[in-house]
């Protein structure tokens, strides 16, 4: 649900770390003359990838806060847009922020846990229907849950009539709707990593009398922590940016997420020009959690995306 598919198993013969360590890491002195053109092109690529981000920041700091006065680099810097953002009672930015964090945070925690449980069963146990089950999950993943949005909407309207706490317009209902895909989306990636943990460890623990639950909770979960972090991150980013279901489910302005709220700030008001600075200020703050997650866990992300099915 983020920009591109989160992750699917990738058949890479060797792990990234191994290959990285096989190559000389320290650049030799004097090699700059041979690679300067690479620097040149890389800087060009940086300009391409960063100019919209620079634009967001400068528009957020632009004192007049309209689109026609926004430049790539700001002439003046002020916080007026942030003041407007936090004092706008018709658009409760802080509630949106809170809703987004709660929905993305608890949704991805639950999703990681459910996925890890299923991956443990698929990786460590042999039972009837295991292989068909795995293939079915892969195929289901091809049918994104959001295509069934009409059905989800109608279903949750009915559920809400009976249990208002998880109906339309509630965070809990939306989280539940997201969790429908929890198993399908991540099991392959997780299972690939679970398979890399030697089974001998399980056997040894079993010989010592540990139960399957004990092995899972105290041993396996810790050994696969890197992939759990990756999957948590991917699903957090996905849920944080999800728009379709959120826009259908969350109708009240107080229950909306950042995505739905910021979108309506730009579109429902009908005055994009006027609200542009306020929008950019909000967008900048909204991007912070995800960007920090990315930069902080970059290694796990790259590793997790590429070595999912390394055996």
């Amino acid at each position: 649900m983020s920009t591109f598919p989160d992750a699917v198993p990738l058949a890479v013969p060797h792990s990234v770390d191994k290959a990285e360590s096989a190559q000389p890491v320290r650049p030799r002195p004097g090699s700059f003359r041979r690679v300067w053109w690479r620097h040149g092109l890389a800087i060009l690529a940086l300009v391409w990838s960063l100019f919209p981000i620079v634009f967001i920041i400068s528009a957020a700091l632009n004192p007049s806060g309209t689109m026609n006065t926004a430049e790539l680099f700001p002439n003046n810097i002020s916080m007026t847009n942030y003041d407007a953002l936090f004092s706008d009672t018709a658009r409760p930015y802080l509630s949106w922020y809170k809703n987004s964090m709660i929905i993305a945070g608890s949704g991805s925690l639950a999703s990681v846990f459910i996925g890890a449980c299923a991956a443990y069963a698929f990786s460590r146990m042999r039972f009837t229907g295991r292989r068909p089950g795995l293939f079915a999950l892969l195929l289901l993943q091809m049918f994104p849950a959001l295509l069934a949005f009409v059905a989800l909407y109608v279903t949750f309207v009915r559920v809400g009539n009976i249990l208002p706490a998880i109906g339309i317009n509630t965070s809990a209902g939306l989280i539940l709707a997201y969790l429908g895909g929890a198993m399908g989306a991540n099991v392959w990636l997780l299972k690939g990593y679970f398979d890399t943990v030697p089974r001998e460890l399980d056997e040894a623990a079993k010989v010592d009398g540990a139960s399957h639950a004990r092995i899972f909770f105290t041993m396996t979960l810790r050994l696969v922590m890197p992939i759990l972090v990756t999957v948590f991150m991917l699903s957090f980013v996905g849920l944080f940016g999800e728009f379709l279901l959120a826009s259908i489910f969350l109708r009240d302005v107080d229950s909306q997420t950042l995505g739905v709220g910021l979108w309506s700030m730009m579109n429902v008001t009908g005055d994009r020009n006027k609200y542009f600075g306020q929008f950019c200020a909000g967008a900048m703050l909204a991007s912070l959690p995800v960007v920090l997650l990315y930069l902080g866990f970059q290694k796990q992300l790259v590793g997790g995306l590429t070595q999912g099915s390394v055996k």
């Binding site: 983020s2 990838s49 919209p52 950042l258 995800v290």
Partner: peptide, 17 residues
């Protein structure tokens, strides 16, 4: 790190911007 930044921004931010 700099090159993956566009991927890190939420879609609603980038599309609207």
């Amino acid at each position: 790190s700099m090159l993956i930044l566009p991927y890190a921004l939420p879609i609603f931010v980038t599309a609207l911007v």
